[in-house]
């Protein structure tokens, strides 16, 4: 007759109780990626300060916001989409369309206060259309927004395939306007708008039902539906938001360069996705923060700044370094989530 096993069994109420509050991983894992990005940013900045003259000038940081204002705005919209587990490939093309359309309309002497809301509305409409196709017809986001990319870029090229300068007074004034933050530290309105976009987005995600629904859908959209959440409306809304952000990015672009060009913002969707990933937003949806995206944008911007300071480096290096960073962060995310399992 065979009998049993080795080690003595623990007695007492520990058994079933153990089941009751079984912790799988520590709750703060969701902050790990964002803290890592912050750490990286600090290390990069410190090494920049240590290696290059004038790197400690506050304007280095302030200029990061100015130079990456468009990317920041677009990445904020992308963050919403990615949080729902989707993706928006059309943002770069919507930027192109917005800049060329803005320039063309202004050239045709449309009043700027009509042009501005019109192009923003157009961006939102393109986004809403994509969202509707994704939700109602269950077309994959990748494909639906790919169609949006072709459509917007095609429309932009059809309008004009050459660069169109903007001579409108309002545009020029905003473009030339400088905001003095401190002695010798100035920035442009577009940077302020980008920062505002981040603040508004962070508040929406943390404190509104819409924001929480975005996370719920990214976590499990079937469950969200059964919990009675407005899944369809929310999905369409995030693509609308992303389209709007892209159009806003396009407007900022047109202000910054006082011109419109149908190839402007080409590939921006990639940069935005990369910034989100580096900022710890999980591409599977449901996890991440706008703050992370902000840090991701700053990291990619700082890489370019450092390469500029270095001077003798091939611009190709910025792509390679961003690739390496992507690799490092993705592997890290993978390790964190694997531990969670």
């Amino acid at each position: 007759m065979t009998t049993t096993d080795m080690t003595p069994v623990t007695k007492g109420g520990e058994g079933p109780e153990l089941n009751k509050r079984r912790r799988v991983y520590k709750p703060n894992t969701k902050y790990v990626p964002i803290l890592a990005t912050l750490f990286l940013l600090i290390v990069m900045y410190s090494s920049g300060v240590a290696n290059y003259r004038n790197f400690d000038d506050p304007s280095v940081i302030v200029n990061l916001f100015r130079d990456n204002a468009v990317l920041l705005v677009v990445a904020v919209g992308m963050t919403f989409v990615i949080l729902t587990g989707g993706i928006d490939l059309s943002v770069g093309a919507v930027i192109s369309l917005t800049t060329i359309l803005t320039a063309t309309l202004l050239k045709a002497d449309w009043p700027p206060l009509v042009v501005l809301p019109a192009v923003l509305l157009l961006g939102a409409l393109i986004g809403a259309g994509q969202g509707a196709v994704i939700h109602f017809f269950k077309v994959e986001p990748f494909i639906a927004t790919l169609a949006g990319l072709f459509l917007a870029r095609g429309a932009a090229l059809t309008i004009n395939d050459e660069s169109v300068p903007i001579r409108d007074d309002m545009w020029r004034e905003i473009s030339d306007y400088r905001i003095v933050l401190a002695d010798g530290v100035v920035t442009k309105p577009i940077a302020i708008i980008a920062v505002l976009a981040v603040l508004v987005a962070a508040a929406v995600l943390a404190w509104t039902r819409f924001g929480r629904n975005v996370y719920a859908i990214g976590g499990n959209s079937d469950s969200a539906l059964l919990m009675g959440l407005p899944v369809g409306r929310t999905k369409i809304a995030v693509y609308t938001l992303s389209g709007f952000c892209a159009a806003l990015g396009g407007v900022l672009f047109s202000i910054n360069s006082t011109s419109g060009w149908a190839l402007q913002g080409n590939g921006m969707e990639l940069d935005a996705i990369a910034a989100c990933v580096i900022g710890g937003v999980l591409l599977t949806g449901g996890s991440g923060f706008v703050w992370g995206t902000l840090l991701g944008v700053l990291v990619t911007g700082l890489i370019r700044t450092i390469i500029n300071f270095q001077g003798d480096l091939n611009a190709a290096w910025s792509r390679i370094i961003i690739g390496v960073l992507l690799f490092a962060f993705i592997v890290m995310q993978r390790l964190v989530t694997r531990k969670a399992k």
Binding site: A274, A316, R319, G323, I330, R334
Partner: peptide
């Protein structure tokens, strides 16, 4: 092997690969 989502895993080479090609041809 590492178990990364394909869309992200290949994004790495998509971004860095063109940089490598530029490096080979020195732009």
């Amino acid at each position: 092997v590492v178990g990364i989502q394909p869309i992200i895993a290949t994004l790495i080479l998509m971004v860095a690969g063109r940089g490598l090609a530029q490096l080979f041809t020195e732009g």
